[in-house]
Computed example of a mutant assay.
Amino acid sequence: MAEVTELEKLKARLGISDDKQDANLKVLLEEAEEDALNYCNRDEVIDGMRSSIRKMAYLAYQMDGKEHITAKSEGGRSESYKDSDGLPSSIKSSLNRYRLGKVKKL
């Protein structure tokens, strides 16, 4: 049985069954991976980071065109997506275990 790719997992979560948006979804996954690596101060993705990367890509897809909105209230329902550095706090907390400290030379 073939291994399920990150793209296929993201498409399943988004409910997308065709391949018309594959190029866009690949870019979102790449950008999410880069953001996660930058946040964690790493050069390579650790397996445990992958679900957070998919969540970041999912949110980016859902927020397409609304990137600068940090809070939204509609019909009595309120949502906040981003923290001050651009990552939702729930994703930051799951990535924190993979963060490497930075060493500065004095």
Results as ranks from 00 to 15, higher is better:
78 S>R: 09
83 D>V: 09
41 N>M: 04
38 N>A: 12
21 Q>G: 14
93 S>L: 07
15 G>A: 01
33 E>G: 15
36 A>H: 05
78 S>M: 07
60 A>I: 00
7 L>V: 04
34 E>H: 15
8 E>R: 13
17 S>L: 11
27 V>D: 11
77 R>C: 06
24 N>P: 01
11 K>S: 02
52 S>G: 10
69 I>G: 08
100 L>D: 08
46 I>W: 11
85 D>Q: 11
16 I>W: 04
64 D>M: 07
68 H>R: 11
54 R>Q: 10
56 M>A: 01
101 G>Y: 08
71 A>W: 00
19 D>M: 06
62 Q>R: 14
17 S>E: 13
31 E>N: 15
27 V>H: 08
80 S>W: 07
71 A>F: 02
101 G>Q: 10
31 E>P: 07
19 D>A: 06
25 L>E: 06
9 K>I: 12
35 D>R: 09
42 R>V: 01
37 L>A: 00
65 G>A: 01
91 I>E: 01
21 Q>I: 03
33 E>Y: 10
23 A>G: 02
32 A>R: 06
76 G>P: 02
100 L>A: 10
66 K>E: 01
88 P>D: 03
82 K>F: 15
96 N>T: 12
82 K>M: 03
13 R>D: 01
59 L>Y: 13
89 S>D: 14
9 K>F: 07
13 R>S: 05
52 S>A: 06
72 K>S: 12
53 I>T: 06
41 N>L: 01
57 A>Y: 03
77 R>A: 05
72 K>F: 09
103 V>K: 08
56 M>Y: 00
77 R>L: 08
20 K>Y: 07
19 D>R: 10
47 D>C: 02
56 M>T: 03
99 R>D: 01
27 V>A: 08
6 E>W: 10
99 R>I: 01
21 Q>P: 07
67 E>M: 07
21 Q>R: 14
14 L>R: 05
89 S>V: 11
69 I>N: 09
69 I>K: 07
47 D>R: 13
9 K>R: 15
49 M>R: 00
43 D>I: 15
47 D>H: 09
68 H>N: 15
48 G>K: 00
73 S>F: 06
32 A>Y: 01
50 R>D: 11
49 M>P: 13
15 G>I: 00
72 K>W: 09
106 L>G: 12
79 E>Y: 13
63 M>L: 11
4 V>S: 05
9 K>H: 05
40 C>W: 11
79 E>T: 12
15 G>Y: 00
87 L>I: 15
21 Q>S: 14
57 A>M: 06
13 R>G: 04
45 V>K: 02
22 D>N: 10
44 E>I: 15
73 S>N: 09
2 A>Y: 08
89 S>E: 14
23 A>T: 14
75 G>P: 03
54 R>D: 03
75 G>T: 04
22 D>M: 00
78 S>G: 06
56 M>P: 04
89 S>F: 14
77 R>V: 13
2 A>W: 08
29 L>P: 00
67 E>I: 08
89 S>A: 13
18 D>F: 06
36 A>Y: 02
54 R>E: 12
100 L>M: 09
35 D>L: 06
21 Q>E: 14
101 G>T: 09
91 I>V: 15
49 M>T: 05
29 L>R: 03
16 I>Q: 01
26 K>A: 02
45 V>M: 00
5 T>M: 11
49 M>F: 03
